[in-house]
Every structure is written in structure tokens, then in C-alpha cells.
Computed example of a mutant assay.
Amino acid sequence: MRASLAFLAAFAASVLAAAAPASASSSFDATYGIWLAGFPVGEADVNSTYDGRRYRIDVQARLVGLAGLITDGRGAASATGRVSGERVAPASFAVNSASSKASRTVRMGLSGGSVSAVEILPPLPEHPDRVPVRASHRRGVVDPVSAFLFPGRGRLAMDDPGQCERTIPVFDGASRFDIVLSYAGTRQLDKPGYSGPVLMCAARFRAIAGHREGKEAVRFMEENRDMAVWLAPVEGSRTLLPLRIEVRTQIGTSVIEAQRVSIDGGGVARAAAR
């Protein structure tokens, strides 16, 4: 449950880059709903700012309803860094997840795409089957929050299928993995805050290091073909807004979907002009 909260918070924070054109300051607020096997189980509030170069993201996630009564689950995540064209350059990352039974905090500093410092409290237990994290695994990476910033690719139109085609190298302080995206289709979406085309990107998980080799949960995620993210072009910017993510888990499909979106205190994301 703690790992799920951290993942959900990280995904919810992916909305930052979509909030701001690359040349202007912007603020962004959103609420994401979280469902598991068709039942509402949580919410995540996102607050982010962007001054044209530097970003900051703050996320608060919590379980609700029966799930919240059982585990009192909650999580918080934050990240800072810069966006330059297609390149995301994180500077700091922190996440705290807690339940009624335990909690864990991860803090990480990055510079030039490489990890400079990591603190995990309490430390992860030692396991002989854990794949060692080498120095090379800490280079050319992004943190889990910054991993889901979606600057537009090159000169492609923002609704071009090629916007889905990317591999994101992620390091969360303990594990190194890739998120591999590919185009799966386009659909029209009409909901409060957005009306227009949505790119449906299939997602795959690829473990690199730090995981426990042969662990059932890792094998399940690597073989999982039921993962997707929906990306919407944002008017006036070279950015994409993640509106929905779907992940099949071992206990049912998890869905995270934007319920409320506010840009600069009142604006909402709209279809990019064609």
C-alpha cells in the first residue's frame, strides 16, 4: 500500500509541465481521483509552479472511504528542477508514504541528470537477491515525479502519435527502471476542463536494478500489458497533460483520472489549436 501511494502521488505530479507554456510563468492546481477495481479509494491534490525554466511540484495523496478507514494511508511527494526544450533536469525529489503500520521517507538530490545524494529512512532491508545498483544506474535519470513531465517532442504536432514514443529512465532512490511508452490510439474526449483529442499511450515497465530478482510482483509488472496513459495537448504550449492512467494490479485495475484542473487560478486545459 505504501508503494502504491508513492506511485500514485508520483503520477499525479506529472501534470506540472502541462500547466505552463515554455516562455511564461504559470501555476497549476488539480485534483485526481483514484479508483481500484471500480471502487473509489483515494484522491491526490497537486500544486505546481513554473517560471519558464524552474518547476516545483507538491503533491498530497490520501486514501478515502473504507480503504482510508482500514489503513489510514497517505503520501506526499515533491520535486524541483528545470525544463529546457524536451529535456527535464531534476534537482531534488522527496516522497513520504505512511499507513497505520509503518512509514518511509526518501530524499534525493540530482545534478546534470545524475544522482548526487540519497537518503532513505528507515533504510531498506538487505536481501541477497536484490540486483545491485551501480554508479552507471544513477546517471542520465529522472526521479519518479519528474519522470511524468511530458514536453512536446521536436517539431511534431502535439496530437501526433509520435508524442507517445519515448522511454523514461527512472531512479527512485533505491530502484532503477524504465517506463516505455508507445502509441495505442487516439480518441476524442469531452469532460469538464478539457474537450479535444487524447493520445492513448501504452506503457510497459522494465526493471533495471535495485529490485529483487525473481520477485513475483516485479515479474507481474514486467509482463503487464494492461497499462496506459492518456495525454491531452494544452492550448498555447508545447506540453501534454496526463488526464488518466490505467494500471492492472494483482488485485484489480487501478485508474487515476483528473477531476478538477485549474491553470493560473481559473483557466482550464483546452484542446490545442489546430
Results as ranks from 00 to 15, higher is better:
residue 79 A to W: 05
residue 114 S to F: 00
residue 38 G to I: 14
residue 62 R to I: 11
residue 59 V to N: 02
residue 43 E to Y: 09
residue 99 S to T: 15
residue 108 M to T: 12
residue 92 S to M: 08
residue 114 S to D: 14
residue 45 D to L: 10
residue 109 G to H: 07
residue 57 I to D: 02
residue 48 S to D: 07
residue 71 T to C: 06
residue 69 L to Q: 03
residue 87 R to E: 15
residue 46 V to H: 01
residue 69 L to R: 06
residue 45 D to E: 08
residue 73 G to Q: 06
residue 78 S to Q: 11
residue 41 V to D: 03
residue 107 R to Q: 12
residue 38 G to K: 02
residue 72 D to W: 03
residue 42 G to I: 10
residue 87 R to P: 14
residue 50 Y to G: 04
residue 88 V to L: 02
residue 102 A to T: 13
residue 42 G to Q: 05
residue 66 L to M: 14
residue 75 G to C: 15
residue 90 P to Q: 00
residue 115 V to F: 02
residue 99 S to W: 01
residue 45 D to M: 10
residue 82 R to S: 11
residue 51 D to H: 08
residue 72 D to E: 06
residue 56 R to Y: 00
residue 54 R to C: 02
residue 60 Q to P: 11
residue 89 A to V: 15
residue 86 E to G: 09
residue 58 D to I: 02
residue 71 T to V: 11
residue 96 N to W: 13
residue 106 V to R: 00
residue 45 D to V: 15
residue 77 A to K: 12
residue 115 V to Y: 03
residue 69 L to F: 12
residue 90 P to L: 06
residue 91 A to L: 14
residue 79 A to E: 07
residue 82 R to W: 06
residue 62 R to C: 08
residue 60 Q to A: 14
residue 113 G to C: 13
residue 92 S to R: 13
residue 95 V to H: 05
residue 65 G to Y: 02
residue 86 E to W: 00
residue 98 A to I: 09
residue 95 V to K: 08
residue 96 N to M: 10
residue 114 S to Q: 15
residue 94 A to F: 09
residue 66 L to F: 10
residue 88 V to S: 00
residue 95 V to Y: 09
residue 103 S to V: 01
residue 43 E to P: 09
residue 50 Y to T: 01
residue 69 L to M: 05
residue 112 G to S: 08
residue 62 R to K: 15
residue 77 A to S: 14
residue 50 Y to F: 12
residue 59 V to W: 07
residue 71 T to L: 11
residue 83 V to I: 15
residue 112 G to L: 10
residue 80 T to D: 14
residue 94 A to N: 02
residue 84 S to Y: 12
residue 56 R to W: 01
